[in-house]
């Protein structure tokens, strides 16, 4: 009984800690900046829903949103397919230097982005990809690929080899086996990487701010930054912008969350 009470207290504290700031921003998104400066933590007296269309139309938000959508969706699509193919090969085929390739890919995870960003900036300028959505997409693919391969490889490695042999006996080529056997079985793990990559890249700021300068090419996190001027911060609009930015992530999470849990408690291949 007491243990349960402690558990609930701990969970309650954690929930407040995790959800509190989110709720705070959510209330601020419905208040004007002047209301907020009067009392930071007050509940909204009048709900200013009109701030949402304002942010969307007056502040170029639709463009940022579209840019984010294009960059993140294409990056995640390529990441998922390329990552799954690499993971399939590393998990399934015995070839010389298999583990070496795996280690090299994996070792890229340990570098903080600040180390590579100057070199990356130079490379993109050289290839004419600086300040382009394609350039940013390629960078997003390359930074997330190691983790994607890492997650998927461990899952693919659990798929019994007999299944592949059975598919070969059934007449399928290696390419078809990947699409018809490996990929569908690994769906929980793939959902995990899709959701993880989408959330991380949707919120990505550092690479975007360094590699994009045109206002028309900015992604959402950069768009929110626009409300922060040198002299004035429109806190109310920042909050509204954050809420708009967060909606797709929440939707994706709701849609994939069951698969995500399955993927994290993997091993259910039997």
């Amino acid at each position: 009984m007491i243990a349960r009470a402690f558990l609930f207290i701990a969970l309650g504290l954690y929930t407040a800690f995790a959800a509190g700031p989110f709720l705070w921003v959510a209330t601020m998104s419905l208040r004007t900046t002047s209301e907020i400066s009067r009392d930071h933590y007050a509940w909204p007296s009048t709900l200013h829903w009109e701030k949402f269309p304002q942010a969307w139309f007056n502040s170029n938000y639709s463009v940022y949103f579209e840019n984010s959508l294009v960059v993140v969706l294409s990056a995640v699509a390529v990441l998922t397919i390329a990552g799954a193919m690499a993971a399939h090969c590393l998990a399934r085929y015995r070839f010389r230097a298999n583990r070496l390739v795996y280690f090299i890919i994996f070792s890229a995870i340990i570098f903080p982005p600040q180390i590579t960003i100057i070199a990356l900036f130079q490379s993109l300028v050289q290839y004419g990809l600086y300040n382009s959505k394609l350039g940013l997409t390629l960078v997003y693919i390359s930074i997330q690929l190691p983790l994607t391969v890492y997650i998927l490889e461990s899952f693919f490695a659990q798929i019994p080899a007999d299944l592949f042999d059975a598919a070969r006996m059934d007449g399928y080529t290696e390419w078809q086996i990947f699409w018809k056997v490996s990929l569908p079985i690994a769906l929980p793990a793939i959902a995990t990487t899709v959701i993880l990559n989408t959330i991380l890249l949707w919120n990505e700021f550092l690479y975007a701010v360094v590699l994009i300068t045109d206002d028309a090419k900015r992604t959402l996190p950069l768009g929110i930054q626009r409300f922060m001027g040198d002299q004035l911060e429109d806190v109310g609009m920042i909050a509204t912008g954050l809420m708009i930015a967060i909606i797709p992530v929440v939707l994706i999470y709701l849609f994939f969350s069951e698969k995500l849990i399955q993927g994290m408690t993997a091993g259910a291949v039997k």
Binding site: P160, D162, L163, D165, A166, A167, M169, V181, P184, I185, L187, V269, K270
Partner: peptide
Amino acid sequence: DIAMVFQSYALYPH
């Protein structure tokens, strides 16, 4: 033109 039955059955789980 050979068929094989595996010890683990190797049924496609999906």
